[in-house]
Design a protein around this nucleic acid. Structure first.
Lengths: 315, 315
DNA sequence: AAGAAAAAAGTTATCGATAACATAGACCGT
DNA sequence: ACGGTCTATGTTATCGATAACTTTTTTCTT
C-alpha cells in the first residue's frame, strides 16, 4: 500500500519512504499494471475509445490528432476503430471497446444502430458524438450542421449568379453526412428558385479520381451546368483537373466548390471556394468535454464549432 | 467455468447448456470484462499498440488503416499514439502502453531512445518497426529503405538529363527518414558527377505551403536549378504551384519530383514524378507479422515491401 | 511525562476470468 | 452389478492495485 500511495502521488508517507520506493522501482524497472488497476477499481479507467468513419480521411486525421493531443495531455490513452460508414461495424467495435471498460467513447456522426445506443445507455458511459450535430445526442455532441454547410454554399453560388448547379458526391456506403450537405444544398437552391440541375453520386471512395470521373459523368449528361458543388475538396480538385484537361475555364465557364478546407485547396493556381472545417478544434473540444464529464463538471449537451465558407477564385 | 467455456467457444459442455448460457447472457446484456481476462491470464492480451510520427500524415493514415483492418479481422484492438518525430515522446508513450500489457507493439522508424529499446527488450514484447528498414531491428521490421528511394530518384533525374538538382524538405524536429532520402539523393548525384546544388530544409510541417515557400526560397538562392526533389508529394505540389504562379514551365524549365505516391499526384494536369509507397500493404504486413509471432509461427526478421518510382511528366 | 492527535505503515478483501484440479453423472463391456 | 472411461459441471486459487480499515510510530500539548 505504501508503494501504491507513493507511485500515485498521494499522501500518507514520509519523504524518506518516497525516495526509497522510487529508487527500488527504478532499479527493478517496475512498470505498474494498469490492467489490474482498471480492473479492480470501481472508478473509470484512463482509456478512451474513438471510432471514425475511415482512417484514411485527411480531415479525420486532424480530428484524431486533436483528440490524441488533448487526451495525452490529460493522461488518457486512445483506442481507435473505423466503421467504414456502417453502423453495424460501429456496433461491433463499440461492443469490443466496452469490454475494455473504457472511461468514455467518442463516436463520429449522429447515426448509430439501436444496439449501439442501447449498449451505451445501459453502461452509462460518457459519450461524445462529433462531426455532425444532433439535437438529441446520446450524451454530448460536438460539431456543426452539414445541412447548413450545404445550404450556405448553395446560397453562395446563387449570389455569385450561378443558376444551373450540379453536385458530385461519393457517398460510399451510407455517408449520411455528405448526404446532409447535398440536402441542404438542394434545399437552398430550390428556395432561391433555381433548383439543383443534376447530381452524380458515385459509390466509391471520395478522392481525386472520383471527383475527376464524377465531373466527367455529370458534364456528359448536362453540358450546360454553370457550377458544381463537390462532396469534398479532394473531389473538387479532381473535378478542377478534369476541367483543365477539357479546356473548360474556371470560374468563367463553370464554377467549382468543395468542402472541408484541405490545405491544398488554398494554394492551387486558383484558390478553391470551399468550407473550412475546424477539425483539430473539434477533436480537442470532444476530448475535453469527455474529460470534463468524467471529473463531474457541467458540460453542455451540444457544442457548436462553427465552419467558415471561404470564397475562393473558382466560383 | 461452464459459462466461461461456452462464451469462449471451447469444449466440455452440452448443446443444451450452451443454449441456456447464450440465452441468459443475451437477456442480461452480459459483456465480458476483457480487463479481468487480460489481467488474470499469463498469456498475451488482444491489445496492440501503434505509434506513428503524426496522425495528420496522409501516408500514415493509410498505414494505420492497413494495420487496423488486419488486426480487427484477427480479433485485436488497436491503441494509437503519436510521437511527433521525437524519441522521448515515443518513450513516454511506450511506457504508458506497456503498463496496459499489450500483446505487441508497432513502432514507426528505426530510431528509438535507449530507454524505449531497453523497455521493449526487457518485456520481451513482439515489436514491429515499420517504414524505415533497419538491419538490426529490436524484433521485426517491415518497410523499405528511404536512402534507396532518394538514390533512385537521384539517378532518375540524372538519366533525364538534369544536372543542377536541388532539394526542398521540411524536416520538422528530427524526421530522420526524410533525411535518409536526402542522403541517398545526394550520394547518387555525387556519384554521377553532378553533386547536389543546394538544399532548403524548412523547420515546418511538410505540407503544401512549405513546398511553395521552400521552392521560392531555393530559387531565390539558385535561379539556375533544373530539377528539385521534394520531401513528399504535398510539398512537390506546393512547389509546382509556385512554378505555375511564377510562369516557370515544368518540366521544360525545371523538373519537379516528389515522394510518397499521393493520389492527387497522378491526376494533376501533369502527372507528378514520384515514388509510390505501398502504405496499406506495409500496415497489413506489420499486423500480420505481429500476430504470426504471437501464434508462435516463424517470422522473418526483416520484410522488404518494395517502393516503385513512377516517372511522371514533371521531369 | 502522560495522553491526545496526527502521520506513517500495514492488513484484508475485492474486482472477473480462467487454469488447474476435483467431482458427478452417463455409458460401456463383461 | 462393477470397475473403467468419458463427458459435463463444479471448486479453488490466482493475477495486481487499491479501498477501507487497523496498527504502529511520531509529534505535539499541557
Amino acid at each position: 500500500m505504501t508503494v501504491s500511495r507513493v507511485l500515485r502521488g498521494g499522501s500518507g508517507f514520509s519523504d524518506d519512504t518516497r525516495t526509497r520506493v522510487m529508487q527500488v522501482a527504478e532499479r527493478l524497472g517496475y512498470i505498474p499494471n494498469r490492467l489490474a488497476a482498471a480492473f479492480g477499481a470501481e472508478q473509470a479507467s484512463s482509456l478512451v475509445g474513438m471510432c471514425v468513419p475511415r482512417l484514411t480521411s485527411g480531415l479525420f486525421g486532424h480530428v484524431l490528432d486533436g483528440v490524441d493531443r488533448a487526451l495525452t495531455r490529460l493522461g488518457f490513452q486512445l483506442m481507435i476503430g473505423a466503421n467504414n460508414h456502417a453502423t453495424d461495424e460501429e456496433e461491433a467495435w463499440v461492443r469490443q471497446l466496452v469490454s475494455w471498460r473504457p472511461a468514455g467513447v467518442i463516436l463520429s456522426g449522429r447515426t448509430h444502430s439501436p444496439g449501439t445506443v442501447d449498449l451505451l445507455r445501459k453502461t452509462a458511459l460518457p459519450v461524445v458524438e462529433i462531426w455532425d450535430l444532433t439535437t438529441s445526442p446520446i450524451d454530448m455532441a460536438v460539431g456543426f450542421s452539414h445541412h447548413d454547410c450545404g445550404a450556405e454554399m448553395g446560397l453562395h453560388l446563387i449570389r455569385r449568379g450561378r443558376r444551373r448547379a450540379g453536385f458530385v458526391g461519393a457517398l460510399a456506403r451510407a455517408d449520411v453526412m455528405g448526404a446532409a450537405r447535398l440536402d441542404g444544398f438542394r434545399a437552398a437552391l430550390a428556395q432561391a428558385g433555381h433548383p439543383l440541375t443534376d447530381a452524380e453520386v458515385l459509390h466509391d471512395a471520395p478522392g481525386f479520381y472520383a471527383g475527376y470521373y464524377g465531373m466527367e459523368t455529370l458534364l456528359s449528361r448536362r453540358a450546360n451546368l454553370d457550377a458544381v458543388y463537390f462532396h469534398n475538396d479532394e473531389m473538387a480538385i479532381g473535378g478542377l483537373a478534369f476541367c483543365q484537361a477539357r479546356g473548360l475555364r474556371v470560374p468563367e465557364d463553370i464554377g467549382i466548390a468543395g468542402w472541408g478546407g484541405m490545405e491544398a485547396a488554398s494554394i492551387l493556381p486558383r484558390r478553391l471556394t470551399t468550407t473550412m472545417v475546424p477539425t483539430t478544434a473539434i477533436g480537442k473540444a470532444a476530448a475535453e468535454a469527455l474529460v470534463a464529464r468524467l471529473t463531474g463538471a457541467m458540460v453542455p449537451e451540444v457544442t457548436v464549432v462553427p465552419t467558415r465558407l471561404v470564397p475562393g477564385e473558382t466560383v
